[in-house]
Amino acid sequence: MDFIQVFALALLQGLTEFLPISSSAHLILLPIIANWQDQGLAFDVAVHVGTLTAVVFYFRSTLKKLTADWFTSVATQKNVGDSRLAWAVLFGTIPVGLAGLLMGDWIETALRSPIVIAITTIGFGLLLGYADWQGKRVRSEQSLNWQDVLFIGVAQAVALIPGTSRSGITITAGLMLGLTREAAARFSFLLSIPVILLAGGLKTIELVQSPLRIDWAALVSGALFSAISAYICIFLFLKMLDRIGMWPFVIYRLVLGGFLLWLFL
Score class of each variant (00 low, 15 high):
G104D: 01
G104T: 07
D105P: 02
W106I: 11
I107E: 07
L111T: 00
S113L: 00
I119H: 05
I119R: 07
T120Y: 12
I122C: 09
G123C: 12
G125E: 08
L126S: 10
G129M: 13
Y130H: 13
Y130K: 13
W133L: 06
Q134I: 14
G135H: 08
V138N: 11
R139A: 14
S140F: 13
S140N: 15
E141A: 14
S143L: 12
L144E: 05
Q147D: 00
L150W: 09
G153P: 08
A155S: 11
A157T: 04
A157D: 08
I161Y: 11
P162H: 10
G163A: 07
R166C: 01
R166V: 07
R166W: 04
G168K: 12
I169G: 05
I171N: 02
L177N: 06
G178D: 11
G178I: 14
T180F: 03
E182R: 13
E182A: 10
A185V: 13
S188R: 02
L190A: 01
I193K: 00
P194S: 01
P194H: 00
I196V: 15
G200H: 04
G200C: 02
L202V: 06
T204W: 05
Q209E: 09
Q209K: 14
S210L: 05
P211G: 10
L212D: 13
R213G: 14
I214K: 08
A217S: 15
V220S: 15
S221N: 11
S221H: 08
G222F: 07
